[in-house]
Simulated scan of single mutants.
Amino acid sequence: MAADRIIFPDWPAPANVVALATTRNGLAGFAGASVEPYSRFNLGDHVDDLPASVSKNRDALLSACDGLNAIAWLQQVHGTEVHLVSAERGEVAVADASISHIQGLASVVLTADCLPVLFCKIDGSAVAAAHAGWRGLLAGVLANTVKAFNCPPQELMAWCGPAISQAHFEVGPEVYRAFVDGFAGVPKEQIDAAFSPSINKQGHFYADLNALAKAQLHNLGVAWIGGGDLCTYADAERFYSFRRDGQTGRQVSLIYRR
């Protein structure tokens, strides 16, 4: 799969762990069923795209992944709930992260600027995906995901997928103050380093989601942390971006045990 279509993390995950991030360009032999403003490979079923198009795209993704039997889709609400994926398929869970111990059953999150973070145990026995916009990140979705593994953080690794970069993510002073006052486990100097003053609006900042996430994960003790070099806003050829386009599709970051 070409990098303009599917992105694979450059990380030292065990051989039985498969992780990837999609782009709007679809798969080899299937560019996607969605049309503007969702073209081409939209995987979000909550953005007013045609349900039949989303279903075709999701089916194509499932078929393209070796050893993947099912994808545990979530209803994301910018919260901190971590869903334990099970083989029993019921209603779509309301959560912003999921963890899977089951071979062939994927954890997945949808994004279009928010930060997706994929996790796995170093021994390959469990995987997770988390959706971290600034609200969920601040409230503890990544910390909760680490805790959900029920093992020392030193047994985990994490990869930060495509998200809006600091240069394009302008926020108000209330966001900076919220992180200073309530971002668990991260000292103020590290928070300050992730906010640079806006050149457009006095008192506003450019926020670095990747830096904030990595600082928290590092302080939690996660053994390996990487990624974070792909900007959804700047790369319109590959990625959906809500802040850039408003009405748009969603890409996914997905991980499973083979």
Rank of each mutant, 00 (worst) to 15 (best):
L156C: 13
D45K: 03
W73F: 15
G185R: 07
C120T: 11
G246H: 05
V109E: 07
G104L: 14
A19G: 01
L74Y: 05
V175I: 15
P153G: 08
A19Q: 01
Y233W: 13
V175K: 10
V17R: 00
G246E: 02
I164V: 11
D229R: 13
A128D: 08
S165A: 05
P12L: 06
I255S: 13
S125L: 12
R258C: 14
K121C: 11
H204F: 08
W11A: 15
A64S: 12
T232W: 04
C114K: 04
A193W: 00
V146D: 07
E189C: 08
Q166I: 01
F183H: 07
A129S: 14
A194E: 02
V47M: 11
P197S: 00
G227C: 05
A31Y: 03
S253H: 01
W134S: 12
L27Y: 07
L217D: 05
A130M: 10
D48T: 11
G32P: 00
L138Q: 10
G226K: 07
A21D: 04
E81H: 11
L68N: 04
N144P: 06
D4R: 14
H131R: 12
L212K: 04
A95K: 00
L230R: 12
L230I: 12
D208Y: 02
F183L: 12
T145S: 00
F30R: 09
R40W: 11
G226M: 08
L74P: 04
R89T: 14
V252K: 05
Y240L: 12
D4S: 13
T111S: 12
D208W: 02
P173L: 09
Y176R: 15
F149S: 03
Y233K: 08
D181V: 00
A143L: 11
F41L: 12
S165M: 02
D96A: 13
V17A: 06
V146M: 10
R257G: 06
A112T: 14
G226E: 10
Y240F: 13
N144D: 06
A163C: 14
V94N: 02
A158K: 09
F242P: 00
H168K: 02
V35W: 05
F119G: 09
C231V: 06
F239G: 07
V109W: 00
G221H: 13
R177D: 15
F179D: 01
M1R: 12
D235K: 02
Y233N: 14
R258M: 14
